[in-house]
């Protein structure tokens, strides 16, 4: 019964893997850059803002945001399908995840896209 839905469709499966590979690169880069590894210093406006204000990093961060949200929320959806039996409840939770994703994407986008360094 839940068998056919238990791992989602083929495209969801494939996209989970594509975003996974993209995230592997971006997330490790993100950790290095935001921490200032190998010599970690605190995350401060002075250190972060000039880089975030460049178009290149805006594109990178938007790609990162989209992949992380898709992959993470689709992952939650896969988990929910394993534990929630009722179809009605599944549909409801799917809706909740979509709304949550839209809100977070919007919040992340208005953070990154118009960003300019302030004095």
């Amino acid at each position: 019964m839940t068998e056919k839905r238990a791992s989602g469709g083929f495209y969801a499966w494939l996209l989970q893997r594509i975003t996974g590979v993209v995230l592997a690169v971006l997330l490790i880069a993100h950790f290095i850059v935001t921490h200032g590894l190998p010599h970690p210093s605190g995350v401060t406006y002075a250190r972060i803002a000039p880089r975030l204000a460049t178009p290149t990093w805006k594109v990178i961060d938007m790609l990162f945001l989209a992949c992380a949200l898709y992959h993470g929320l689709n992952g939650v959806w896969m988990v929910l399908q394993d534990y929630v039996e009722s179809e009605g409840m599944q549909t409801f939770l799917f809706g909740v995840l979509c709304v949550l994703g839209a809100i977070l994407f919007f919040l992340g986008a208005i953070t990154v896209i118009p960003f300019a360094v302030q004095a």
């Binding site: 401060t44 406006y45 803002a49 975030l52 939650v76 919040l107 992340g108 118009p114 004095a119």
Partner: peptide, 28 residues
Amino acid sequence: LALVFYLVLHIWVIHNISSGPKGFDKVM
């Protein structure tokens, strides 16, 4: 799941960078 939980809080926290150096450094 832990990473999703972190990501939700993180996007919200990082949004403070729009408020300029004082606000951001205070939150950070």
